[in-house]
Nucleic acid binder design. Structure first.
Lengths: 335, 335
DNA sequence: AACTTCTACGTAAACGTTTACGCAAAAGTC
DNA sequence: GACTTTTGCGTAAACGTTTACGTAGAAGTT
């Protein structure tokens, strides 16, 4: 029903080729016909059909974003950055909610493949062989966001979890703490789990604090409830702690809750430092000291990498983004 | 580079029409050729090109979602629901971050129009005339989510803000409170601002509590910082309050912060009730009593409405979703 | 004036599908 | 066995673009 290039051509008494040339501002027409065609376009309210364009150009100006969860603040921020950069590059994003489920993920990859998207951003989760094989057959740029693969050569953008954790732990010892516990995420998680645990341990060791296995508790995930339970367990098995490093802000906020129930005050009875710097970090009471991942910037960067790969045809270089200590009020100098 | 229907046809010694028929399981071929074609498809790893399909079918199986903010939990939950329902219906979503900006919104509408999406979900914001005129020219289904238009006939899905606010206020008086304040959003906002204010006032009146203008404070928006400032102002101009209704959970959490700084305890010194039931509501200390908007379900419903309009060609009926009181620990019986 | 070179277009094929139409052979009917 | 009907398939047009190629006339060159 909408007007097509043919309607424009007919009304302007030119061929569709000329209209197309004007639309894509190429050369090969006079100023006069350009004016005329533009007027007709305006009059009809014509707008080119991106589907048809996509068919011939083999570019849809759309990228696919795979995320493990949608109603998570972590993902929300990352998406914010991706969308912004994509929009600036004249592209749209299709978001796919995988629930970290292999089958759903494969279905989404299938779908994205059929839709001939220009690139993929795979966010925060393990890149299974199956995914890699499929996407590499698609021959389109892919970048990993807040995750990485040791096995497959896919560029990523990430902070250095090991270093960031190290920094968090070191911050606590610099504040005079020596009895420090950690609420970690899943210890099977090679990406966000293990490196944070290792960074934490190393920092303590390097400062002459022996780390006892009782000082770290392993949760299933990085969510609020994990933090509630994890902190309870941690304090049961080691009541003398004066500070806790939580591997995510949500875990930290979960800890806040159980500490409150145990009638322990943050930071007077116990200092807490988080990880991520989500918006809840500054909303909590007391405001949470945390090590920031620049999530929005990471999203932007990932999107830009996809577009640059698209332009250049070459693989982009992975990028480690800087983390940063955000000092608020949940950590107290140990007198 | 990927295989096309022609490759399949050639290898299977049939025409492309036959392959197409099999793909779309229509009739007009024998079991034997179906087997053969399917085998060839499997061998080649052929997958149909949705762009080409879209061109002829005039259906892209993609809907556009316009949201005012991306890194907001409100939007995140709503998106969760939309994505889920869209996926079940075999469609994808393109998300557009308008920042409630007229120009950006128009640009996105333009883009979505060119991409020939099948439908639009417009979330939480004012439907300007300009938007309506444009989208009605597109002749595709649109539904309003968490907003509505008195002026234009666009179906919506929403809770009844007036009633929900009324319920919140009534809940507070049922708990014995009589000195009740409100932190409202923008008083110019015809959708989420005014009705909540009116519902609040009406409930007090109906219970014989006279409402003083000093009892409600108007913020710019519904965000955390608005709540921080709003609650401060509210308590300055009316220190004797025993309960506060915040027009959003973020406003409530903002209030938590200033109360904490003023050394007032929730709910012992002051009861607070929120609005939305975002995930922070249960993470806060104390957990926030609030009136829930079923955000995920609302998202699902909106998406389903788009698809049903697409099938039937008729306008869907607007839907008022039920709100619900979520009792947690931030409101105390006034002795 | 007789060339070459540009400029400003138009024609038609291509992108990868779906589908209306046509037709030969198989199957059913009497 | 002479029909009608059905089944199984192929041909070609259409969807709305882009673009390679061709060409007539204008402009430049000698």
């Amino acid at each position: 029903m909408p007007y097509t290039i043919k309607d424009v051509a007919k009304k302007a008494n030119v061929s569709i080729a000329t209209v197309s040339r004007i639309l894509n501002n190429q050369t090969g027409y006079s100023e006069k016909t350009k004016k005329k065609v533009l007027t007709v376009i305006e009059e009809l309210g014509y707008h080119p059909n991106a589907v048809a364009r996509g068919l011939v150009n083999k570019r849809t100006h759309t990228i696919g974003v795979l995320v493990p969860a949608l109603s998570s603040m972590f993902v929300a921020e990352v998406l914010d950055g991706i969308e912004k950069a994509a929009n600036e590059a004249g592209s749209s994003i299709i978001v796919c909610h995988t629930e970290s489920n292999g089958e759903k993920t494969m279905n989404y990859l299938q779908l994205l493949n059929e839709k001939r998207i220009d690139g993929i951003i795979f966010t925060s989760g393990i890149l299974k062989d199956e995914y890699y094989e499929f996407t590499s057959k698609m021959k389109i740029p892919m970048v990993l966001l807040a995750t990485l693969s040791h096995k497959h050569p896919v560029p990523y953008v990430k902070v250095d979890d090991y270093k960031a954790s190290y920094a968090a732990a070191e911050y606590l010892v610099a504040k005079g703490h020596t009895k420090i516990g950690m609420i970690s995420g899943n210890k099977m998680d090679i990406i966000a789990g293990i490196p944070r645990i290792e960074g934490f341990k190393k920092a303590l060791e390097d400062h002459g604090i022996s780390v006892n296995e009782k000082n770290v508790v392993y949760c299933e995930g990085f969510a609020f409830l994990d933090g509630v339970e994890g902190s309870r367990k941690l304090l049961e098995q080691n009541p003398e702690l004066t500070a806790i490093f939580a591997a995510s802000d949500e875990l930290a906020i979960g800890a806040y809750s159980t500490l409150y129930q145990m009638d322990l005050r943050v930071p007077d009875d116990l200092s807490i430092i988080g990880y991520d710097n989500l918006s809840i970090a500054k909303m909590s009471i007391p405001p949470l000291t945390t090590v920031e991942q620049p999530l929005i910037k990471m999203g932007e960067e990932a999107a830009r990498m996809v577009f640059s790969m698209l332009e250049s045809g070459e693989a982009a270089k992975s990028r480690i983004m800087p983390h940063q200590m955000i000092e608020r009020l949940s950590v107290k100098e140990k007198g």
